[in-house]
Structure formats: structure tokens, C-alpha cells
Design a protein around this nucleic acid. Structure first.
Lengths: 202, 202
DNA sequence: TTAACAGTGGAACGGATCGTTCCGCTCTGG
DNA sequence: CCAGAGCGGAACGATCCGTTCCACTGTTAA
């Protein structure tokens, strides 16, 4: 049988359990030991090393998943006909998916794979396109990199309860989006791409 | 002589050097070893242990200094006659002084002293007073705890160059303050005091 | 029925790290 | 000229963590 009692079935379920556990653990502490992931998942350490070559491999997978989620959110938001709605949908979607709180802290702790680099480029293109559509509605001086910073700022909002964290982020992404809408020129030199991608250098 | 070549003079200068080094080092990595502080300061480890009972003592001193700076900024801003200007001066001042990037990450790593608790209460009172003055000019639903969150969000803005970090924070504190000014009701339940002070529990 | 084995738990290992101590040196100030 | 404050940094002991390894279990295919 291939039912829920099968060996392969159990293994397949562990795939998910481990990834979810890793996500939770590294969200709380990005330097957590790998044993903490196993413990949270309720499995032994072997179950981890059977799936991933090492800690770095697990972290890479986790980040790559986040990147894919980012792309998915962008592709979905892209379909909104209204420019501002598309932009807002995207930002709120990424914040809600909580992509950045992991990636920001895990950046630089692993060597990105080829495929990941390709996805990163694609993610950037999608985000740029969404930004360009919204640009006329934003404060003068706004650049795509500003969007990245806003997302990172939202990721800094964190309280012990994940659900409350989500609620609070909705609150502050609202403030940020409000503050980005047409008004005075944004002060100071805009962030450059190098300033934001420096984390990825190992 | 008590000139610059004296032994005591050199020691007094080390007091400052060490504190500044500690500030820089723990800003870059809040889990940095104490040896990194000594290295940055250009002194031996003994020079550190001569002044502080241990790492925890040093961290406590660092945070307490930040707290005092926070109070000083509040007292200064308080004197602004215009309610909004007072609020804005305070927020910009605290962000510029970079109080939160250290304290947020160091919270919970040491036992606060009695004096520190007293100062924390005073700091809270001052901040509350400034907030109350500005409340009529803020979006409905805004609470003092929102101000704390905004400051923490600004602390999340960081690039390798400290000067650029400062410039960028000016940029985004501008966005945040703009987004907090009179407009629609803030979405979702406001943050509670417990949700923000949880970090301090060891 | 059973032999092979994928999948697993978790002890054990080796290396790295870090806070703290300690000893010997230097240079000052009286 | 010397007692000792101040200091540098090696050394120590305690963790901590990634990874390996091996014994065991339940499944599956013949």
C-alpha cells in the first residue's frame, strides 16, 4: 500500500515537516543549530542529513523557496489592471508571505546556486516592472531599491506571536505605503543596488 | 604631570576608546566576542576586564548609555513649542542617535540594573508626553507603542557605510512620519506594551 | 516468509569559539 | 629607585555545533 502508513509516505511527510520546522526555527534565530530544527520537527538528525548535504544546503533551499514565493507574488500582482493596486498587492503580498525576515538574515551564510541566481534576476525584473508602473503615483525621487528597503523594514516588525506579527505588519505597511504616495521629494540620495546586495557577499 | 603622556591619562583615554569600540563592534554583530572589542580598541583584554566585571556588565553599560541618550533627546525635543515639531524633532533625534539598533539586539542578554529600570520608566514617561502632544495630528488609532515600532523599523535600515546608513534613515523616517500624519484610521489592533517589552525578559 | 534495504534516531567525535583568568612586563609617580 | 597600577595576550576550561556513524525498525519485493 502507498497509504499513510507506508514508509515512503512517512518520508514524504517528513520532507514537509522538516522544511516547516526549519522555517520556524531560523525565523526565531537565524543562527540556530541544526539539532534545533530536528527537535522542532520531531525527527532525528539523520532525517535531515538524508535530505540535505549539510546546513548550508538547507539554508539555501529555505532561501530559494522564499525567492520563488517572491516571484509568485509578483506574477500574481502583475495581473492587476490598476497600476497602484498592482504595486500595493505585490508589497502587501510579499510582506504577508514573510519572505524577507528569513532571507535578510540568512544572506551571506551560503553560496547561492546557479538556479538561484537566475531566479534572483527574474525576481528583480518583475519587481522593477511593478515599480515602474507605480512610479508616477509615488513621491518624486523614489527608486526600486526603496521598495526593497520598505520590505526589509516591515520584516523588522516582530513579536512573539506570529499571527500578531502579521497583523502589525499590515498596520505598518499601511503607514509606509501611505508615506510613499505622491508628496514631497524623498530626502537624501536614494539607496544604490550595491548597498542593498552587499549582504550576499560571503 | 597629568598631561597626555601620564599613565592615568592614557587609562582615561582608554575608557572612551573601549566604549566607542564596543559600540561599533556590537553594532555590526551583537554576538561578537569580547576579544573583538579589545582588538578594535587596540588594547588587550585585560584593559577591558579592568573596567568591567564581565561581558554582561559591558553590554549593560552600553545599553544604559543608549537609554540616557534617548532621555536627553526627549528632554531636548520637549522644549519645542510646536507640538508636531517637538514630536518630529524627537523621532528624528533618536533615529539619528542610533539608539535602537544596539538596544533592540542586546535586549535580554543582560540583567538590567536598578538605576536602568528607573531610567527606562522616565524615558517612557517623556516619550508618552511627546506622543500625547502630537496625537491630534496623527492618524486615528495611533498609540505610543506605534512610535516604538517606527523607531525599531528605522533601526532595521543598515548598509555597510555608517554615514550612508544615517542618510538613508533620514529618508525613511521621512516616509514613516508622513504616513503617520492625519489620515485614515490605522488598521488592525495596535501593539500592546507587552508585545514590545518581551525582548527584555531573560 | 524472508532477505534486503531505505529510512531513521541519537550517541559520539573533533573542531571551533569564547568568556575569563593569570602571569609577566612596562612605565609612572612619588 | 622601587612599589604597584595598568596592561598584553597566552592559556584554560566550558560550551556548542556540524557531521559522521552505527544499530535498529518496519516495509516491500520476490
Amino acid at each position: 500500500m502507498t497509504s499513510s502508513s507506508g514508509r515512503a509516505r512517512q518520508a514524504a511527510r517528513n520532507d514537509e515537516t522538516i522544511l516547516r520546522a526549519a522555517h520556524e526555527v531560523f525565523l526565531e534565530d537565524h543562527r540556530a543549530p541544526i539539532s534545533a530544527v530536528a527537535e522542532r520537527a520531531g525527527v532525528g538528525i539523520s532525517a535531515l542529513y538524508r535530505r540535505y548535504a549539510g546546513k548550508e544546503d538547507l539554508l539555501r533551499t529555505l532561501c530559494h523557496d522564499g525567492l520563488r514565493r517572491f516571484i509568485a507574488e509578483a506574477e500574481q500582482a502583475q495581473q492587476q489592471p490598476d497600476d497602484w493596486t498592482a504595486f500595493e498587492t505585490f508589497v502587501r503580498g510579499v510582506v504577508h508571505a514573510d519572505v524577507h525576515s528569513l532571507t535578510v538574515h540568512l544572506a551571506g551564510t551560503f553560496a547561492p546556486s546557479e538556479e538561484m541566481n537566475a531566479d534572483a534576476i527574474r525576481a528583480n525584473q518583475l519587481a522593477m516592472a511593478l515599480f515602474e508602473r507605480a512610479r508616477p503615483l509615488l513621491r518624486p525621487g523614489a527608486v526600486p531599491a526603496d521598495m526593497t528597503m520598505l520590505l526589509e523594514m516591515c520584516a523588522a516588525v516582530r513579536v512573539p506571536d506570529p499571527d500578531r506579527t502579521s497583523e502589525l505588519r499590515v498596520r505598518y505597511v499601511d503607514v509606509l505605503l501611505d508615506g510613499m504616495r505622491a508628496g514631497d521629494e524623498l530626502p537624501g540620495p536614494a539607496p544604490t543596488v550595491e548597498e542593498l546586495s552587499w549582504r550576499w557577499n560571503r
